Amino acid sequence: MAISKNKLLKNVSGKIGNSLVVRQCGGKTVIAAAPTRRKSRSDPATTKRQERFRAASKYAHFALKDPGRNEIYAAACRGNQKPYHIAIRDYFKAPVLSDLRTSEYHGLAGQPLIVRATDNFMVTRVQFALLAPNGSFMETGEALPDINGVDWVYITLVNNRSLKGTLIRVTAEDLAKNKTTLEVVL
């Protein structure tokens, strides 16, 4: 791929013979080798990747029709990036949960549970669920983002008499609705 400064090619796009393609990208004239048709592969791994990319493309088209999401993705563009490509990248990466901090939780209502939730684009929601040792739900609720932008804080609502064996389930969601779950037993 080469960038042309030739004034004759300014605002020109198309194929030159069977070997070169001229296109406009970010206000620059780009000359590249003409694309070639590849032989179709039908192995299961390739088919799975193609299906996943098709789903990502559908998500990106859907997301860009929503003015709110379109604005968010457009704001993240740098250089020649397009909101469509940012949305596809977001679709492929789920949030990552780590560093669940329970040191300030002693089974009383009003105590914090803190988790680190990160994503390649944006974490939109983190939900906590506490289950008793027998598997019954004790409480569930939304965490709020901490001032540092990566930690999420949940304040417990009920007293927990059986702290040992309590299961804490944390679920994070990003703008593309990818979900990740982290479970810890106290």
Rank of each mutant, 00 (worst) to 15 (best):
N178E: 14
K93I: 06
T171W: 03
E71K: 05
Q127D: 09
A132K: 09
G165Y: 02
A76L: 07
L8S: 13
G26I: 06
S13F: 15
I72Y: 14
A176F: 11
I31R: 03
G26F: 10
S103T: 09
T124Q: 03
T180V: 11
I3S: 01
S136F: 12
D90V: 04
Y105N: 01
C77T: 07
N160H: 02
A63E: 08
A74M: 01
A109E: 15
D151F: 01
L131K: 13
A143V: 05
K93L: 10
R52A: 09
N11W: 14
A33R: 15
H106L: 09
G107Y: 08
P145K: 04
Q111L: 02
R52T: 08
V123C: 00
K179G: 12
Q81D: 13
C77E: 08
A74V: 09
T124K: 00
K15A: 14
A74D: 10
F121R: 04
S19V: 14
I114W: 04
N178Q: 11
K82W: 14
V153Y: 06
A76F: 14
Y154P: 01
R161N: 05
V153Q: 03
P145Q: 04
A32Q: 10
Q50M: 10
D66S: 09
V185E: 11
S40M: 08
S42F: 06
A132Q: 13
R41Y: 14
A33T: 14
K164H: 02
G141H: 10
G26E: 09
K7Q: 11
K39M: 08
A60Q: 08
N70E: 04
H106F: 07
L182C: 12
A117F: 07
R78H: 13
Q127M: 08
K15R: 13
G165W: 00
L163I: 04
S162E: 08
T166L: 06
N148R: 00
G149H: 03
K65D: 15
I147K: 00
A33H: 13
G68Q: 01
A55Q: 07
C25A: 12
L9P: 03
C25Q: 12
V21K: 12
S13T: 13
A87D: 15
G17R: 12
S19T: 13
R125A: 06
Y84F: 15
N160Q: 03
G14A: 12
E71T: 06
L182M: 15
G141V: 07
A132D: 15
D174F: 00
V153K: 12
I86H: 10
G17C: 13
Q127V: 12
I168Y: 13
L9I: 06
A76D: 11
Q81G: 06
D43R: 01
L167S: 09
N178R: 11
L64F: 12
A87N: 15
L113T: 04
G27A: 00
N148G: 00
A109M: 10
N160K: 00
M138S: 03
D146P: 00
H61F: 06
E142R: 00
Y105D: 09
P67Q: 03
A132M: 11
A109K: 06
T181L: 04
T156N: 02
V30K: 02
L113G: 06
R116C: 11
L144G: 02
I88N: 10
I86V: 13
K82N: 15
A132Y: 14
N11P: 07
M122G: 02
L167V: 12
A60H: 08
T166W: 00
K179M: 11
K179C: 12
I3T: 07
